[in-house]
Each structure stands twice: as structure tokens, then as C-alpha cells.
């Protein structure tokens, strides 16, 4: 049995998360990934925005920072640029990262700064009670989309890919083993790394959209997702309504802080 306790601030329990929320599975996968990598807790800095998912930073025994809504990546950028030896991991929700924080999100990816982002996509604003998010699928209901969402949803991973991230992967809480491995690879990869995790919110999304029990919602992930390898063999029609999981991008690209260090070093050489 894996021992999570040494990574948790158990005195801060119980968690604020509802029973049946997917976020706990992501939390445990993150801890296992960090443990496998053998990172010292003192060298991990975890930064979050505002939302249910962003409350995670209060529960883990690292250097932790719970910032303002949508701004986690800006604080994280300051930390990474000022103290590059820290492993900076950002925890954010779909609304946090792509609505109010959308600008910071694409710019952090463009800079390809060495930050790992774990983006909890539950298709909804959980914390504030189920308002529509830029990631709510078209037609789905939210408290502020009572007749169904009439807008298009963002492809979060696609955004990071297009903006220049080194590593982009999509995962589910259904496949927690894969999730853990993808988080591990994301942390290892230098540059901006994103793991978009589909994490069900039974309370604010599932109930309103008649998605069944929390277990139903997790099992449903198995039906709606296909792996990158399987997707390659499928036609566009077959892929309709499917979500592709696995590694979407994994490339070596110049990293922001290292490029800046070259500049600093060039002056040092000049003497």
C-alpha cells in the first residue's frame, strides 16, 4: 500500500470536496507521481488559483501558494523565474485557467516556462455552484445556462499545443494509473507541461445533466474517451463526440528560464 500520509497535511482534513468528486483521485495520482520521481518536498512549490480544485494546495505538504482567481500561472512565473531550482506545479480548474486566466494560460505556454500544470476539467464552475464554464460542452446545462449552453467549448489541450507547450496530455480519473504516469512525464519534461484531467463534478454538473451517480460518471469516461493510438485509426465520423486521451505533444523546446540564464551568463563571461 502506498503511504500518502507523509505528503498530506492531515490536520487540515476533512477536505472541502464533496464525496464522489473526482479531484481526490487526481490528488492521489499527483502524490504518487511526485513520490516516484523522488522529489524532495522542500523543492516542490505548488501554486493554485481559486476553485474547488485549487483548494488542493492547502492539503499537501510542499511550499504552497493559493492565489487569486485565474492568476496562479502569473505567481508561478515569478517563482520559477526568481528561483529556478524549484519544481513549480500549478493546480487549476477549467474556469480558472481558461476563462479569467485564459490570457495567462496561453502566455505561459508560449514562453514555454518550466511549469507543470495540472488542469482539473470538470466542465463547470464547481465552487460557485455550477455556472457555465468556457469548457461546458454545447447543449449541457448549468445554473447560468438553464436552457443548455449555446456557446462552443474550448479545447484546453489544443490551446496549450497551439501556444507552444513542450508537453500536453489528457487523462481521466477513470484511468488513474495512466494519469499518474502522465503527471510524472509532465514534471520530468522541461518547459510548459500540461495534464488536462477530466475530473467529474457530480454535485454541480452531474446532477443537473442527469449523468447518474459519481461512479456512473467515472465509468462514462471509459465510453467517451479513446487513446491517441486508437484515434489514429479512426475516421472523423467515428471520432465525433469522443475525447482523445494520452500524450498529445511531447517535444524538446527551448525553455524560458534557461534562455534567460544564457543571457545572464553571457554578462558573467564578459566579466
Amino acid at each position: 500500500m502506498f503511504n500518502y500520509e507523509s505528503y498530506l497535511r492531515l490536520d487540515k482534513f476533512p477536505l472541502i470536496w464533496c464525496s464522489g468528486c473526482g479531484d481526490g483521485i487526481v490528488l492521489k495520482s499527483m502524490i504518487r507521481a511526485i513520490d516516484k520521481l523522488g522529489l524532495s518536498k522542500d523543492d516542490v512549490c505548488m501554486v493554485s488559483g481559486i476553485g474547488c480544485s485549487s483548494r488542493l494546495t492547502g492539503y499537501v505538504d510542499f511550499n504552497t501558494l493559493h492565489t487569486t482567481h485565474g492568476r496562479a500561472l502569473t505567481f508561478a512565473t515569478g517563482i520559477k523565474m526568481a528561483k529556478p531550482r524549484l519544481h513549480v506545479i500549478v493546480v487549476t480548474g477549467d474556469g480558472d485557467a481558461t476563462a479569467i486566466g485564459g490570457n495567462h494560460y496561453i502566455h505561459a505556454a508560449r514562453r514555454n516556462i518550466d511549469i507543470t500544470v495540472i488542469l482539473f476539467n470538470n466542465f463547470i464552475y464547481g465552487m460557485t455552484g455550477g455556472q457555465v464554464s468556457p469548457c461546458t460542452p454545447k447543449g449541457k446545462r448549468a445554473s447560468t445556462a438553464p436552457y443548455g449552453n449555446f456557446e462552443n467549448a474550448f479545447n484546453i489541450s489544443g490551446l496549450a499545443q497551439a501556444a507552444g507547450a513542450s508537453f500536453v496530455a489528457r487523462a481521466t480519473v477513470y484511468n488513474a494509473v495512466q494519469l499518474e504516469k502522465l503527471i510524472q512525464r509532465a514534471i520530468e519534461r522541461k518547459g510548459f507541461s500540461l495534464v488536462e484531467v477530466l475530473s467529474p463534478c457530480p454535485t454541480a454538473y452531474g446532477r443537473r445533466n442527469r449523468e447518474g451517480t459519481p461512479v456512473d460518471m467515472i465509468l462514462q469516461q471509459k465510453e467517451t474517451t479513446v487513446s491517441v493510438a486508437a484515434a489514429e485509426k479512426m475516421s472523423a465520423e467515428e471520432l465525433e463526440g469522443k475525447i482523445i486521451t494520452g500524450v498529445l505533444t511531447d517535444v524538446e523546446r527551448p525553455e524560458c528560464r534557461e534562455e534567460y540564464q544564457k543571457l545572464i551568463d553571457s554578462f558573467r563571461k564578459e566579466g
Binding site: 492565489t67 505567481f75 515569478g78 520559477k80 526568481a82
Partner: peptide
């Protein structure tokens, strides 16, 4: 973002 970054740097 500028304000967020300087807070992060100061905390570091």
C-alpha cells in the same frame, strides 16, 4: 500578471 509575478518572486 505583472503584479502576480512580483508577489511570486518576493515569496521566493
Amino acid at each position: 500578471a505583472s503584479m502576480g509575478a512580483i508577489i511570486g518572486a518576493s515569496l521566493a
